[in-house]
Computed example of a mutant assay.
Amino acid sequence: MSHTAHIRSHRKPRRSASTIAMRAGVAGGVLSTLAVAGASGSAHAAEPVTQTLELPTLTADLAAQVAQSADATQQAAANYELVAERDAAAASAAKKAKADLAEAKKKAAEEKKKAEEAERKAAAERAARSAERATLSASADTGSSDSTGSSSAGDTSTSTATGSAAAVVAFAQAQVGKAYVSGATGPSAYDCSGLVQAAFKQVGISLPRVSQDQSTAGTQVGLDNLQPGDILYWGGAGSAYHVGIYVGDGMFVGAQNSSTGVVKASLSYDPPSGAVRVL
């Protein structure tokens, strides 16, 4: 017996063919099972692919929504821009209207100032004429008194007036010496047309208020054919700037200006432009 016969061999024993075949079958079955499982796993793994294929549809809908939202935003922006343009146009129009109003007021103030200046000049001229007429009237009254012995020339003039004309003349002469106030109609102060209107009111005749209208209130008469009670006017018929009442003997009574008040004066000093007869 060999000296190594008692030592177990380190080699593995040979497997039999049947054992190998059995193991191969088992291995084949395992592989088949794995293959089936793998196929099943692949089938399950394909499901997300199907969901992924639907993404383009979802993305297209979302893009349409985004585009629609963008259109709405753009339309809103356009509306805001239109409103802003309208507001700007309204503000510009309001600014221009304000400027035009200011310019109109400025022009109106300038025109008013010019008119007032012209009126002041005319009043000054009338005052100067009235003062001179008053002086001449005083001289005429003195001369009349010396030649006839009467106290005033007015006494003679009223003697030629009759009826309503006499009443108008008497009233006018009774106001001599009273104050002149623009727009006044008595009884303590008058302007020229206010005196004429008040005088004719005494006999029940209603005359227009202003000189322009009074200068066309009756029948036009020539200055060489005057009668006591006729209305005298200075300026054009319909545009007269002053009126008075003829009282006879070449004299008239008128509310001249604030310096002289109501006076009796001679026609020769400042001949009137025309006359109208109401009575």
Rank of each mutant, 00 (worst) to 15 (best):
150 S>A: 12
81 E>G: 12
229 G>Q: 00
175 Q>W: 03
184 A>M: 08
86 R>E: 14
67 A>P: 06
251 M>V: 09
261 G>C: 00
194 G>Y: 01
273 S>E: 11
131 A>D: 11
15 R>D: 07
92 S>C: 02
58 L>C: 08
106 K>G: 12
21 A>L: 08
153 A>T: 13
261 G>Y: 00
107 K>M: 11
17 A>R: 15
182 S>Q: 05
44 H>M: 13
25 G>A: 12
194 G>M: 03
73 T>L: 12
212 Q>R: 11
187 P>G: 13
40 S>Y: 11
95 K>S: 15
66 V>A: 13
71 D>T: 09
7 I>A: 13
260 T>Y: 04
94 A>W: 01
34 L>W: 07
55 L>P: 04
12 K>G: 12
217 A>P: 04
193 S>T: 00
37 A>K: 05
166 A>G: 01
37 A>C: 07
248 G>A: 04
202 Q>E: 12
5 A>Y: 11
56 P>G: 02
182 S>P: 02
37 A>Y: 06
44 H>R: 14
176 V>A: 05
162 T>D: 10
166 A>H: 00
187 P>D: 14
158 T>F: 03
266 S>M: 03
112 K>A: 14
279 L>C: 07
34 L>H: 06
206 S>G: 00
272 P>F: 04
231 I>F: 11
216 T>S: 14
8 R>K: 14
198 A>E: 00
210 V>E: 05
107 K>W: 12
100 D>E: 12
225 N>I: 07
263 V>P: 01
111 E>P: 07
56 P>R: 03
2 S>K: 09
93 A>M: 08
188 S>I: 08
77 A>F: 04
268 S>G: 10
193 S>W: 04
240 A>F: 13
68 Q>N: 14
216 T>R: 13
146 D>K: 08
272 P>C: 07
218 G>E: 03
89 A>D: 10
187 P>A: 14
208 P>V: 00
249 D>I: 06
2 S>Y: 07
91 A>T: 09
262 V>G: 02
24 A>F: 11
19 T>L: 13
257 N>K: 07
225 N>T: 15
25 G>S: 09
140 A>G: 04
194 G>F: 03
193 S>V: 04
155 D>G: 09
85 E>N: 14
104 A>H: 06
170 A>K: 08
112 K>W: 00
259 S>A: 13
230 D>E: 04
146 D>A: 12
222 G>P: 04
207 L>M: 11
239 S>N: 15
92 S>H: 12
264 K>C: 05
126 R>C: 00
177 G>F: 03
174 A>M: 00
11 R>Q: 13
248 G>Y: 00
55 L>V: 10
138 A>M: 06
132 E>I: 08
116 E>S: 13
158 T>M: 05
28 G>R: 10
101 L>Y: 11
70 A>S: 12
37 A>R: 04
64 A>F: 01
49 V>D: 06
195 L>R: 01
44 H>L: 15
184 A>W: 02
41 G>T: 09
223 L>V: 02
50 T>Y: 10
218 G>Y: 01
265 A>R: 05
82 L>N: 14
263 V>S: 02
141 D>V: 03
38 G>K: 08
48 P>V: 05
149 G>E: 01
43 A>F: 12
13 P>K: 14
197 Q>T: 10
198 A>N: 08
245 I>S: 00
